[in-house]
Structure formats: C-alpha cells, structure tokens
C-alpha cells in the first residue's frame, strides 16, 4: 500500500497548493489591503454613510430574495419530486436556466423587459412604477439569478425519500399542510437550510446582473459588490478592500454556518 499512500500525499499536496493559490492568497491580499493603513482607518472607512447604505441595501435585498426563493424552491421541488405531470422535464430544465445564462445577460433581459424602451416600459411609466435602476429591479435580477439554489438542493433529497410517508399521513387523515409540516419538512430540514445558506451567499455577492439593472446611484442603488468597484475606481484602494472584507466575512460566516449545519445534519 506504499504506492497508494504516496499517491494520496501527492493528491492532497496538489489540492492544498491549489487552494492556497486561488483562495487563501487572494483572501489574504484582501484583508491585508484593508488593514494597510491600520485598524482605526479600516474602521473609519466602513463607517462611511454611503458604504453603510450599500450594506443596508444588500441586507434588505437578501431579506426579500431569500424568503421568496425559499417558497419557490420548496414548491418547485415538491411538485417535481412528488408528482408526475405533463411538462415536468421542461420545468426542471427551466429551473437550471439561471445557472447556464450569463448574469450580465440576465440583467439585460430585465432591462429589455422593464426598461423605458422595453416591453412593459410604457405601461410602467404610465403608472409611475420604477423597476429598473431602482430597488425592485435589483431584487428581481437577484431573484432570477438565485432561484435554482433551494430547488436544486431539495429535489434529490425529496426524490430519494419517495412518497410513502406522505401517503401514510394522508391515509391517516392529515391535510396537506399538516403532511408538509409534520412529515416532509423534518425530512428535508438540513437540505433546506443548506440551500438557503448558498442562496443567501450568492444573493449578497451577485455582481453582473445587479450591475446592469442598478443605475449605480451612489448611496441608493449600489449593493456591496458594486460599491467595491466604485471605491476601487476612485483610487480608494483601502476603502475598496475594507468593503470587500465585509463581503468576505459575510461569505465566510455563511460557510461556517454551512459546516455547522452539515454537522448537525449528520448527527
């Protein structure tokens, strides 16, 4: 078995080196850049009201996108895994669409739909509803980009479990909601939380689609990733790295939450 041990070490070595090169070093650069002028300065940068507005907008957007996509994801996964119906294959393909479409194109779709020259533009203008270049547009674009996450996580779990337990519950007189709450939900709980965490991470970090529909109004329609770009372009490298660090912390926090959830799930 000496050869396989040797092989294993090489593989681990390659994996670690790769991880270090593409993940640890860049992340270190971000934090290093943020602290270039010291902790006090980094703290000062983060307290800037426009940065605050970007953070707030990102959190608000996630607070809308995550519950909506949670509901959508559960209902899509539920209907695909538990029922047979015409067009099921098409629905599954459609759910994967945001994974295959470039985020910039996703953003452009909504500009073509809701923009002033777009399909719904004149109607929206007549009713004085601003979608694109305002918060609704940012939310819709993020919804689109992130909607596969929960469904994709749940479908395999639900399919693996089959319908037996639900059928038993219904036979015993449970209504639809009771069946879902007492039977289905406990079974998919960990997959669900895992999906939500991924969804949240992507929603907060999305750049391309949001950049197209944002309008980049300072302090109003800039999310954290867009604000990082602005600071960088204004020669405020330290500021850019500070705000990028916040995003990195949010992502790392999400990943730690993911690991904890996984551990719980295995118990």
């Amino acid at each position: 078995m000496t050869e396989s041990t040797w092989m294993r070490r090489v593989l681990i070595g390659i994996a670690l080196a790769f991880l270090g090169l593409v993940l640890i070093v860049p992340l270190g650069t971000v934090f290093g850049g943020a602290l270039e002028k010291g902790f006090a300065n980094a703290f000062h940068e983060v307290q800037d009201p426009i940065t605050g507005a970007a953070i707030l907008l990102t959190l608000k957007m996630a607070a809308v996108v995550v519950p909506l996509n949670l509901i959508f994801g559960i209902s899509a996964a539920w209907s695909i895994a538990k029922f047979d119906f015409f067009g099921k294959k098409i629905l599954m393909t459609l759910i994967d669409l945001p994974f295959t479409v470039s985020p910039v194109v996703s953003g452009l779709i909504f500009v073509l739909l809701f923009g002033a020259q777009g399909l719904l533009g004149p109607w929206l203008a007549a009713h004085d509803i601003q979608v694109i270049f305002a918060i609704p547009g940012i939310i819709i674009a993020t919804l689109f980009v992130t909607f596969p996450y929960v469904a994709r996580e749940l479908i395999p779990i639900m399919q693996a479990q089959g319908n037996d337990q639900e059928e038993a519950a219904v036979t015993m007189g449970a209504n639809g909601w009771q069946t879902f709450y007492h039977v289905t939900l406990p079974n998919i709980r960990w997959g669900l939380i895992y999906g939500v965490i991924l969804l949240n991470a992507r929603a907060m970090g999305e750049f391309g689609a949001v950049s197209v529909v944002s309008g980049h109004v300072r302090g109003l329609t800039n999310t954290i990733p867009l604000h990082v770009e602005i600071l960088y372009n204004e020669y405020n490298l330290v500021g850019a790295f500070c705000v990028a660090s916040i995003l990195a912390f949010l992502a790392i926090g999400t990943l730690i939450a993911k690991v904890l959830v996984k551990k719980q799930g295995e118990l």
């Binding site: 601003q130 270049f133 980049h216 109003l220």
Partner: peptide
C-alpha cells in the same frame, strides 16, 4: 444631488432605458 458615474455611452444608454 445624487450621483451616478460610468462610461459616457453606457450612462446615456441607462438614461434612455429609464434611469431618471
């Protein structure tokens, strides 16, 4: 006064598309 900045052509496009 709120500000939006970007490449000139791209900004014009946004205003045409409904940036108020």
């Amino acid at each position: 006064v709120q500000q939006s900045h970007g490449g000139s052509g791209k900004q014009a496009r946004s205003v045409i598309d409904g940036l108020e």
